[in-house]
Design a protein around this nucleic acid. Structure first.
Length: 268
DNA sequence: GCGGTATGCCTAA
DNA sequence: TAGGCCTACCGCG
């Protein structure tokens, strides 16, 4: 479930799993070249920025970075070491003494130079999960964008880490119609959007899933099914607030989910 | 077994 | 705007 929360959680978990250890890096699938990392490299840290991950290794006294982007399909699987043989779709295997992480289906998995990493970061807007995020950049971009707010929120150069689920939920919670031009979102609402992004993404990191409704975090799987409405409109047939049918339509090739009653176009 | 679907994003036209 | 890429899972026959 790769939106920003998944990436930040992976950074935290992988850093904890491999902190300071020597990790063996391989590509069972063969589509990633680990280079010098194949013989073992010490993991110095894992950094998350929006939906991008950067693994910093030291091998042969030099620093090496691996860039990972999960895209739509990418997934990490964690197992205890020694792990069973990988599936043949595993693009990258990170093998530590206690933990082995398999990565399958990513859009990107490659070693990058500092210059290449900087170029990736330069394309990204502020990330609400990062302490160094500057929300003013987000506010400024919205203020001068004529694009629909539903498009602006998915634009990683406007804000980094928001995907289709968070977009739908943010807009619903602030009663914004996805088609409203971003520049018409009032300044107060821009600020509210930022605070909400910070709160929801942080919750997503802790719970390892996207939960935007107040629902309790149920202890038993049976209860979990009963309280399955972890969203207001995304993936729902009926709006969790008012019960009206949730509308779906394609906006720039991505399906937007919203409630006509709670999010009228004129009501902003 | 097949087809549809998914929380993403890039490129060609 | 359409198509391509990447993988896993689910419902259907």
């Amino acid at each position: 479930m790769p939106e920003g929360h998944t990436i930040h959680r992976a950074a935290r978990d992988h850093e904890a799993a491999f902190a300071g250890q020597v990790v063996r890096v391989s590509s069972p699938q063969g589509r990633f070249d680990p280079g010098v990392l194949a013989d073992g490299a010490r993991l110095r840290g894992v950094e998350a920025y929006g939906k991008h991950l950067f693994y910093a290794f030291v091998a042969q006294r030099r620093r090496h970075e691996v860039h990972v982007h999960l895209g739509l399909f990418g997934k990490f699987r964690r197992r205890a070491s020694p792990a069973p043989p990988p599936r043949d779709t595993v693009r990258m295997r990170l093998e530590g003494t206690r933990v082995t992480i398999d990565l399958a289906g990513p859009t990107a998995c490659q070693r990058v130079t500092p210059k290449e990493k900087a170029a990736i970061l330069a394309r990204l807007g502020p990330d609400p999960l990062r302490a160094d995020a500057d929300p003013e950049r987000f506010f400024a971009r919205l203020a001068r964008s004529k694009a629909p707010i539903g498009v602006a929120l998915m634009d990683q150069s406007v804000v980094a880490g928001i995907g289709n689920v968070y977009r739908a939920e943010l807009l619903h919670m602030l009663r914004l119609n996805p088609a409203l031009p971003a520049c018409d979102v009032p300044a107060e609402t821009r600020r509210a959007l930022w605070s909400l992004m910070v709160g929801l993404l942080r919750r997503g990191v802790e719970e390892k899933r996207i939960v935007t409704t107040r629902g309790l975090s149920p202890a038993s799987p049976r209860l979990a099914t009963a309280c399955a409405t972890s969203t207001h409109v995304y993936g729902q047939r009926a709006c969790a607030s008012c019960g009206a049918s949730v509308v779906r339509y394609a906006l720039r090739a991505r399906t937007v989910h919203y409630c006509r009653t709670c999010q009228p176009l004129t009501g902003a």
